[in-house]
């Protein structure tokens, strides 16, 4: 009796410590975002006011959120980024799951060699080959075209690697049985594999979406005209021109975060499961 009591007290202190740690971490994670939200509705001189620090100013400047659309062609940037992100994500999902199926479930000549080519490039920083890549892309007439970013982002080795790990976790018996039933490989892929890969696809969607949405160096090199630029470039351009308009910069930053966060919230249900099943954990 006494033992369980002391145990439960022990558990209680443990829980208190646990929650204390959790709250500290949550605060560290959240503070920059809270600051961002708070600064986005402040006037420039209020932003750094510390004594006293107010979270929501007396007269919140909601106008910052309206002004940012007219100060820079934000709508164009948003349109470009949305277009790029959606196309890249779809292409990535389709082509890498398609290729990964072959790598995981079919035997063919040069399979290992081809897969090794994918793996080797994961360790290769993009900056190592961005110059030759640029020259080649431009010779294809892709310079200053949104298509360039699509070509750049849509065929990543990482996607293939991830999906292959996932498909390898699906028992072979499943596809063997289908083959005996006379299904073609394409049917097996679309009727059996694809419906099973929801968690993996969700995970890949999050990774690709986040990467494409937030990419900076790629668009910097390829997209020159203002009407082709993405949100990240636009935001950076705005910061260098209006460095002291903190309220506006923060409002722009908040706007740039919203879509990614929505996508993440929608897909996070599958997220941990997806990572677990793709064998990314090793």
């Amino acid at each position: 009796m006494a033992k369980t009591k002391s145990k439960s007290r022990h558990d209680l202190t443990k829980r208190v410590i646990l929650y204390a740690i959790l709250i500290i971490i949550a605060v560290i994670m959240a503070i920059p975002f809270i600051w961002m939200l708070s600064a986005s509705i402040k006037a420039d001189r209020e932003v750094f006011q510390m004594d006293p620090f107010v979270l929501i100013p007396k007269n919140p400047k909601w106008s910052n959120y309206a002004k940012i659309w007219t100060k820079i062609p934000m709508l164009t940037f948003v349109k470009n980024t949305v277009f790029l992100t959606i196309v890249v994500t779809l292409l990535q999902l389709f082509t890498s799951s398609f290729a990964a199926y072959a790598f995981a479930k079919l035997r063919f000549k040069f399979r290992n060699g081809l897969f090794l080519a994918y793996i080797a490039t994961i360790a290769m920083p993009w900056q190592v080959y961005m110059v030759p890549q640029f020259l080649m892309m431009r010779s294809f007439g892709l310079n200053d075209k949104l298509l360039a970013i699509i070509c750049l982002q849509a065929f990543s080795a990482f996607g293939v690697f991830m999906m292959k790990q996932f498909y390898e976790g699906i028992p072979d018996e499943l596809s063997e049985a289908a083959r005996i039933d006379g299904m073609t490989e394409y049917q097996i892929y679309s009727h059996i594999m694809l419906p099973l890969s929801k968690p993996a696809l969700s995970t890949l969607t999050i990774f690709t979406f986040v990467n494409t949405w937030n990419d900076y160096l790629g668009p910097l090199i390829y997209l020159k005209s203002v009407d082709k630029k993405t949100i990240q470039l636009g935001l950076k351009m705005f910061i260098s021109q209006y460095s002291s308009d903190y309220g506006l910069i923060m409002a722009g930053s908040v706007l740039s975060l919203i879509p990614v966060i929505i996508v993440f919230m929608c897909l996070q249900k599958y997220f941990v499961e997806g990572v677990a099943s793709t064998g990314l954990k090793g």
Partner: peptide, 21 residues
Amino acid sequence: MVDLGSTDYMTVLATELSGSG
């Protein structure tokens, strides 16, 4: 007119003019 922005103007321009395209 094509606006290349002022921040990295000469870098962007040199990239643009490399090769012959």
